[in-house]
Design a protein around this nucleic acid. Structure first.
Lengths: 369, 369
DNA sequence: TTGTAAGCGTTATCAT
DNA sequence: ATGATAACGCTTACAA
């Protein structure tokens, strides 16, 4: 039903209908009685404004584009959840694009989103498969961009939301150290990812502070993304074959850590009794793994929310013809201690039961008879 | 740049430009030289048609709506991957909506998508939080709908893509049976989910065929969704407390199975040596769990592709003013044997190494030094 | 307090 | 072989 139908049936002009239904400022001067009638009729006819006409007229698509590097990666999913949360209260909708870890898909998807005239762009770009340089080529520089999960070297093309990776790395090693571990082994992330470099810096910082040596042969460098458990699995096997002795393993991320735990178990090394393992991210699987994984948590939903908030602010700025100011937002990570780490020599101690592992919901406990 | 700019600079009319750029049938009658000029100019000016104007004019949004019950659930993510795959080759884009397992969110999201005038709807409705009855209330009955992951009782409002749940349940029990297990315990899905009922029927069918008894106290009924590992965890604990003796556990799905394995491990029962566990779905986590989980695989990406294909066909039908015919598509599940199941009494046999667990990529093996 | 009309960028119809 | 024009549904400047 076009607006003209509503106007006709209400006995007023299209202008009035539009004013009323949009609660435009000028609607103040419209008689309450008129408004009532219009609203009533609109409801009766189930009038739905045509978004496309409105967009054509007003040049506002109320749409933001989201590109994730891999929809299948829980990291992305949770950030999307955050974006959705923040976006929900507004009239904005987001168009999702899955780059599937392929850089040319990323490029193409970017074009498609531009064609749909998104008013802003949020990139979950934790992975290197997104070559952010192409952002420069966007023809409309008036589009605010927020990159989540990746610190950008310089440039001011985009705002960023990222975790304090250095502190995260620092905390991870600190945790192992405080449990008494000294023979520690590292699955280091690829140098091509900024995150790995920063996390490693944090690790080195703590090591230096405690005068802990990090022999070269205790480090395994992970290949370029995609990173998945099998990477951690084979890296750990390689380490074992190398003959290095260790009581704890610090992994680049949870995926890697899960693979590591599996490899250790398969080789008959019990986690955490004989070897502690710590990950990074706190993906869902970490909490229900066997054993539940100790990790450094990235509050992903929160990061998504934060990113969306920054983006919406940017869009508002553009609409108001204000300059878009790039923000660099850092989120603090959080140590989550579960059952994959234990104090050195606590062999006798029975594994604690579920105090920090799989989460207990009262309803669930009740519901299951 | 509007099309008029291109027309002006090319020295032809807007009509001609439109015809050329869209490869319209009538473009045949346009001189090749003219076409060349137009295309050249369009490229120079970086002309991008305004989708909103086009939609306003032609009433085609080239957009489909996708509602998932939980973006965070790997099941949904993989189906989305399939939808994306199928959709990519077309000019269609999909609008994603995350119901977050809440029925009123589902309702609201549905409205939003209708407002955006999607030409079709695909629902990943494996969970009960989506009350499909509201579909009836869609004001435009001309919109084809495909439901993925849930069989619909009757009604012809939507096409469906679902797995052969009965056969899946049948296979799962058969697998355990063939390994020699007779004392089997069941974590049965909620009766409110059609899938659970059907899977259970398959289980009963096999049991009857083999004259296998299913005592009431070997069954634990799971509460209503969301289903997550903690449900399986507590269900298994409850079972153990009940004092039932068993050598194998058949779980409703992978999430439940993972929780079950964890519970067993925590109670000192080794999987698979002392107890075999089988799941359903084959989510990613199943392959890298500790131990890797034997399961009945739902080819989720494939299901997403199939669903999108059916939907696009339906949309084409609507455009051609043909009747939309509802399709019920069944996909065959597949048994994936990993390390969480073993032959009864094979206690002596060492757990096999990685032959069917974490997948080995040659590159990865090489890459990791 | 309400109405008229222009214009957003396309494409389909009808002309030439 | 190409062009002029109307129409899609909405919002807003201007008029009354």
């Amino acid at each position: 039903m076009p607006i003209s139908d509503v106007a006709k049936k209400s006995g007023v002009s299209m202008t009035t209908v539009s004013l009323v239904l949009n609660n435009a400022p000028r609607a103040k001067y419209i008689a309450e009685s008129t408004k009532e009638v219009v609203r009533q009729v609109a409801k009766e006819l189930n009038y739905q404004p045509n978004i496309y006409a409105r967009t054509l007229r007003g040049n506002r698509t109320e749409t933001i584009g989201a590109i994730v590097f891999d929809i299948t990666d829980p990291y992305c999913a949770h950030i999307l959840r955050g974006i959705e949360n923040e976006t929900r209260a507004t009239s904005f909708q987001y168009l999702l694009s899955d780059a599937q870890n392929e850089s040319d898909r990323f490029r193409r998807n970017l074009d498609i989103l531009m064609l749909r005239r998104v008013e802003g762009l949020v990139l979950v770009a934790n992975s290197l498969s997104m070559d952010l340089a192409v952002l420069e080529s966007i023809h409309n520089p008036q589009i605010p961009i927020v990159v989540i999960g990746r610190q950008l070297p310089e440039s001011t093309i985009a705002s960023t939301v990222s975790i304090n990776n250095e502190y995260g790395g620092y905390m991870a090693l600190q945790h192992l150290y405080e449990l008494g571990h000294r023979r520690i082994v590292y699955l280091r992330g690829p140098k091509t990812i900024v995150d790995s470099v920063l996390r490693w810096e944090g690790i080195e910082e703590f090591a230096k502070k405690m005068d802990l040596k990090i022999p070269r042969q205790t480090i395994v460098d992970l290949p370029t993304p995609p990173i998945n458990p099998s990477v951690g699995f084979y890296a750990t096997k390689a380490l074992l074959k190398r003959g290095v002795k260790f009581t704890a393993l610090l992994a680049f991320d949870d995926m890697t850590a899960l693979g590591a735990v599996r490899a250790l178990t398969e080789e008959g090394i019990e986690v955490p009794r004989e070897c502690s393992v710590i990950g990074f991210d706190d993906i869902d699987a970490a909490s229900y793994y066997n054993p539940p994984l100790t990790t450094v948590r990235q509050p992903m939903v929160h990061m998504g929310e934060e990113g969306a908030r920054i983006l919406l602010t940017g869009i508002q700025a553009v609409r108001d013809r204000m300059p878009i100011l790039g923000t660099q937002r850092f989120i603090e990570p959080e140590l989550v201690v579960r059952n994959s780490t234990a104090a050195l020599g606590s062999a006798a101690k029975k594994e604690k039961k579920n105090d920090r592992g799989i989460y207990l919901t009262p309803q669930i406990q009740q519901a299951v008879v």
